[in-house]
Amino acid sequence: MVQFDREIRLPTGAELPNSDDTPVDNENQNFIPNLLLFLLKFYWNQRNDWFFGVDMAIYHTTGVSPLVPVVPDGFLSLGVERFKGDALRVSYVVWEENNIPPIFALEIVSQTYGGEYDKKMDIYAKLGVLYYVVYNPYYWRRDQHQPFEVYRLVNGEYEQQIGEPFWMPEVGLGIGRGRYNDGGSQLEVLYWFDERGNRYLTAEELLARYRERFGELPE
């Protein structure tokens, strides 16, 4: 683990850049994490002890420098405030979050290889991210991996897990692939699942089921 000099004053979130200015290079990298976020906003709307970030910088003290962030496509932290007062976070600064690292991180592999299976894996392990998911639907043969892989941190190292959807008891969620209907097209995306393997439905799907059963909503 990288030793950090605690005598050095750590910058505040307001002093840190909130982006690495690296654009996403495929639609999945934006759409899938946002789908996971909005599912949580719907199903966990009464909870205020979680935060899900999308393409957001995580500043931490376990890397080469606290000024160098890691930027997952998506990540989930538990035991933190849903909102920082009346403001939205511009970045996730671990030392301003009671030193709580994310419990879950997601990387979606793109055409340009981004170190998802080595460099970033090492960063997340040192940070203490318990579950790390790599989604690679297009380039898995190139990278000699599976399209969907879940890793759990065991004694400081990631061990690949078996099963899909995969239940994460410490998170209280399962994660796996499913189909999303978008304008008549069936797209493969990632969804949350419950412990019994039931997929979390979107608000649109729940509304459609209600209409099938009861007809139109009352005005």
Rank of each mutant, 00 (worst) to 15 (best):
P218N: 08
Y210W: 14
F148C: 05
F4S: 04
L39F: 01
N198W: 09
A125S: 14
T202F: 03
L88M: 11
S65P: 09
Q3F: 13
G174S: 06
S77R: 06
H60C: 04
N34D: 09
L106K: 01
V68K: 13
V189C: 10
R209Q: 15
E212S: 11
F166A: 01
Q46C: 01
G114S: 14
P102T: 02
I123V: 15
L207P: 00
V171I: 15
I32K: 01
L16W: 09
E15I: 05
E204L: 13
P72L: 04
S91C: 13
A57W: 01
E149Y: 09
P147V: 11
P11S: 03
L40H: 07
L78H: 02
E212T: 09
E195A: 15
V154M: 07
E27M: 10
W95M: 02
K119P: 00
Y151S: 02
G128W: 07
E195M: 01
L207V: 14
V129C: 04
E188S: 10
N99R: 07
E97M: 08
E170T: 09
P66K: 05
D73L: 06
K119L: 11
Q186A: 12
F75I: 08
G176M: 05
K41N: 13
V70T: 14
R196L: 14
Y59A: 06
F42T: 13
T61S: 10
D25L: 08
L130W: 00
I108L: 08
I8F: 03
Q146A: 14
T61E: 11
E15W: 06
W140Q: 07
E219K: 12
E15F: 07
V133N: 01
P102H: 08
N136I: 02
W95R: 04
P11D: 07
V71N: 04
R213H: 10
L10M: 12
I162D: 15
E212V: 06
L206N: 03
R199E: 13
F193K: 03
E107D: 12
V189T: 13
Q146C: 00
E149G: 05
P218H: 04
M168G: 01
K41R: 15
E159K: 11
E157L: 11
P147D: 10
V80H: 02
R152F: 00
T62W: 02
N198F: 12
V109M: 02
N99F: 13
N198I: 03
F166N: 06
N18I: 00
N34K: 10
L201W: 13
G156P: 06
Y180V: 12
E15A: 12
V189D: 00
L76T: 02
Y138H: 13
I175V: 13
Q160G: 12
R152S: 13
G85F: 05
W192I: 03
G174D: 04
L190W: 07
F51I: 02
I103W: 00
G176A: 01
V80P: 05
A125W: 03
L78M: 10
